[in-house]
């Protein structure tokens, strides 16, 4: 705060003429300045012609729209649709802008432009009106007997408070389906279930997965599940094969991979986007939504971004035919965190 900021007039000691007021007076409305059309009848006539022309343009736009509508098929390719949309849209814009600019031009150049003054009044009612309102309320309250009959009042409030239950209870009862929220903790993966490619559903032979490649995986038989979309949203997996020398596995997860092939949930542990961008050089998986970055070579731990937890790992192995299968479901809930996920 400088001294200037707190400057408070500073001229108290000045011997100024006594008759000066403390504040300036509002000088009042400036005089009306006539437009060209107010003085020159020809300019006025020109303004009128402009308005007429603009309305005419609008009518042309409407006609053009109708012609384009009947004459131009949308076609079956992107070009045809674009042509139709563009033509119809431009004609519509002309039809609308014509009316709009005509009306505004009319208002600005032809209509009376003398400013007028209207007085304001305080919002609050006069004391008399307020007293009248209070008196009316009191008279009504007295008529109802509300203050004398306490039991009636309680009964009324009680029944009013209770009756919404008739709507709320069935609503809450049904709105969450079966309310079985434990489904968040399980997916359809189970021991021996084959890993298949998304979306074709072909089983994956471990030998076919080359080092550095990424396969988007869904469980076998997904399309036969009761709610395939719901199951898919939880069960999607990314299969990545690393050079076993690059892979650092925790002791308790040594048996979860197969020949450097690891499988991680594709659902981000932040807010659930599919984690889909794999950087082969760094072994980093990047979520395209909020850029959480997971290190696949290190148990899919978070190396950057708004996610906290590593992507859950799906323990895998191969079956007798050499196809990749799950050893079990995930050992923890997949996807975003929720209150009871560790319960």
């Amino acid at each position: 705060m400088s001294t200037i900021d707190r400057y408070s007039g500073g001229s108290d000691e000045l011997s100024a003429p006594e008759e000066l007021p403390d504040r300036f007076q509002n000088p009042g409305l400036p005089p009306h300045r006539p437009r060209r059309g107010d003085l020159d009848p020809r300019a006025d006539k020109t303004s009128e012609r402009i308005v007429l022309a603009l309305f005419g343009l609008s009518t042309l736009g409407t006609i053009g729209f109708l012609v384009a509508y009947f004459a131009l098929p949308t076609g079956t390719d992107a070009g045809g649709i674009q042509r139709s949309t563009m033509t119809l849209g431009l004609a519509l814009a002309f039809a609308l802008l014509g009316i709009g600019t005509a009306a505004i031009q009319w208002a600005k150049s032809i209509m009376n432009d003398h400013e007028r003054v209207e007085e304001r009044h305080l919002m609050e009612s006069s004391p008399a009106v307020r007293e009248g309102a209070i008196a009316n309320l009191e008279a009504g309250a007295a008529d109802s007997g509300l203050s004398r009959r306490g039991l009636l009042k309680s009964a009324m409030i009680g029944s009013l408070a209770l009756f919404p239950l008739t709507i709320v209870v069935p609503l809450i009862g049904n709105i969450g389906g079966n309310w079985n929220v434990s489904t968040f903790k399980h997916t359809m993966w189970k021991k021996g279930l084959r890993l298949t490619t998304d979306p074709s559903g072909r089983p994956i032979r471990a030998a076919d997965v080359t080092i550095g490649s990424v396969v988007h995986v869904i469980p076998d038989g997904l399309d036969k599940a009761a709610n395939p979309m719901d199951e898919k949203a939880k069960a999607i997996v990314l299969l990545i094969r690393l050079d076993p020398r690059d892979l650092h596995e925790a002791d308790d997860r040594k048996g979860w991979s197969y020949n450097g092939i690891v499988a991680y949930s594709k659902v981000c542990t932040h807010v659930g986007c599919p984690v889909a961008l794999y950087e082969q050089q760094t072994h980093h998986l990047l979520c395209p939504c909020h850029q959480s970055t997971f290190d696949v070579a290190n148990g899919a731990k978070v190396v950057f971004g708004p996610a906290k937890r590593p992507l859950p790992q799906l323990p895998i192995t191969v079956d007798s035919e050499g196809y990749l299968v799950a050893q079990s479901d995930f050992h923890e809930p997949i996807g975003p965190s929720f209150w009871e996920r560790l319960r």
């Binding site: 519509l92 609308l96 802008l97 014509g98 009316i99 709009g100 009306a103 505004i104 600005k108």
Partner: peptide, 13 residues
């Protein structure tokens, strides 16, 4: 006129 016209301008744009 001004506000009514302006509706058409906004819609037109």
């Amino acid at each position: 006129a001004k506000a009514g016209g302006f509706f058409f301008v906004v819609f037109g744009v």
